[in-house]
Amino acid sequence: MPTMDVVIPTAEPKTDPRSSERATTATPPTKIEVRNFNFYYGDAKVLHDINLDIPDRQVTAFIGPSGCGKTTFLRSINRMNDIIPGARAEGRIAIDGKELYKPDVDVVALRRKVGMVFQKSNPFPKSIFENVAYGLRIGGLNDRRALDEVVERSLVRAALWDEVKDRLSDSAMALSGGQQQRVCIARALAVDPDILLMDEPASALDPIATQKIEELVYELKTNYTIVIVTHNMQQAARVSDRTAFFMLGKLVEYDDTNDIFMTPKQKLTEDYITGRFG
């Protein structure tokens, strides 16, 4: 059988016929492929030659000291950096094989497939219902019954439905911080993305709300590919399947989470994880 060195997205993870002797944790297909990716703000280079493959329907965590470029890299995946002056990308990021930084790419459609949750929750000053329905209305869906259905499903998936089902027309601004963040998650889920990018989603929340968000991430990964930026290493260890450690704009190490935290291969990684520097 010819060896296949291109990974094809498939429904179920396939075991590689070459490795039947090895442990059968199947290699999941690659959802996001990054090759030789560089990023500039004006003349300052903030990301250097990033190469990695983010697997489908798993949680990948980006960790690293502040200013290491992990948020910049995250925002490159849905091209949110486009709105920043002087921002420039070089290299390749591809989702399911389709490159993102080509001129014919419709950024609007891209952002429906790649959802984003921000560090500071930013619900619109509208009702909970209208917040979650926003992405759908934009897309032209205004049928009340269809909206009701999708809104409910999204709020269920965001583990918020039971708490708000009786007050969907209340303003989202009246909710607690943790609830607001879950509204934002539901809002992002409503447009049915494949990938969910989360930029330190729990950093502004209390421990209980944080725990809820982490449980949510764990549930969501069965249906979505999740990339989460966090400065909290324990969170990364708890929640993610694979972890990437960044420093000064370079990808230092990328491995299964267990391996990174138990047996890091790079000294820098070990120093960071053991807290030798922030």
Binding site: V108, R112, N122, F124, G135, I138, R187
Partner: peptide, 17 residues
């Protein structure tokens, strides 16, 4: 606030929307 605009763009809305 600026982050409301960001949230809207991240959901795939155009600038006019």
């Amino acid at each position: 606030p600026h982050d409301l605009r960001e949230a809207s763009l991240a959901l795939g809305a155009t600038r006019w929307e």
